[in-house]
Design a protein around this nucleic acid. Structure first.
Length: 245
DNA sequence: CTAAATGTTAAGCC
DNA sequence: GGGCTTAACATTTA
């Protein structure tokens, strides 16, 4: 569920709740969920992997699905208790499972830098470039997962971007030629949108070129697999066609 | 069935 | 306190 494009899809699927009043709340969250009763949903937004529900009175609900979170719209999991369930008129409901929920009591525009969100209209590649250049020793595999630079990029997108642009995950950002660094930034956004389209059509996995794959589609040799960088996340790469700068 | 996985935060240590 | 590493959490699939 977690990467940025999936949150954008959720935002779209949740639009039937826009402008509706929350009539019922339940769930095993420890936050003061009663606070949501009677609130009208004013906007649905997202920043990277954060799903944001703005209420009509000066606060928002932030939902983060972490690794295992999920949701159901107008249905429920018979085997699980929602972390938070929002009920609306006509019996419709929005159920959130095993996710982190919390209130935000400041305007979202004060808290979030929308320019860092790869799925946002406000995405600013120049800002990402300057943030990358500020930390030249960062490895490419870590840089792509940095939510301050590429909000919304997760491990799948990381692996696919590096494969597409033929960059070895252990390359230092500062060692990439300028054109290659720009390519990394641009591809982070481009692949995220491809991810979004494929996910909506339920064909995401079949388009993976590196993530979880055993063989390089270009070289036909085995892909390398290891937990790399300070993030220790799974990397899949081709030792032949991905250049170690 | 055990392990690992699309992620983040808090605790612990020097 | 800072900076770093590890643990914790939670669910589904291979």
């Amino acid at each position: 569920m977690p990467e940025g494009p999936s949150i954008v899809i959720l935002k779209e699927q949740a639009t039937p709740f826009l402008g509706r009043r929350i009539e019922r709340v339940s769930g095993n969250t420890t936050i003061d969920k009663e606070r949501l009763l009677g609130q009208r949903i004013e906007a649905l937004r997202s920043w990277g992997k954060h799903f944001l529900v703005e209420m009509d009175v000066d606060f928002s609900l932030r939902v983060h699905f972490m690794l295992f979170g999920s949701y159901r719209i107008n249905e429920q999991k018979s085997w699980a208790t929602p972390r938070l369930s929002l009920g609306f008129d006509g019996g419709s409901e929005f159920n959130l499972y095993s996710c982190s929920v919390r209130f935000i009591d400041v305007p979202l525009d004060l808290l979030y830098d929308w320019k860092a969100d790869v799925m946002s209209e406000a995405w600013d590649p120049k800002l990402a470039l300057s943030r990358l250049r500020a930390h030249p020793d960062t490895l490419a595999c870590d840089a792509l997962l940095d939510q301050d630079v590429f909000a919304g990029v997760g491990n799948i997108i990381k692996n696919e971007v590096l494969f597409r642009i033929r960059v070895h995950p252990l390359s230092k950002v500062g060692d990439l030629p300028a054109a290659k660094l720009r390519e990394l930034v641009n591809e982070a956004r481009q692949y995220s949108f491809d991810f979004y389209e494929w996910k909506k059509q339920f064909v995401l996995k079949k388009h993976w070129l590196a993530h979880t794959r055993r063989t390089c589609v270009r070289c036909q040799i085995p892909l390398q697999k290891a937990h790399l960088g300070v993030t220790h996340r799974r990397s899949f790469w081709c030792g032949n066609c991905q250049v170690h700068y």
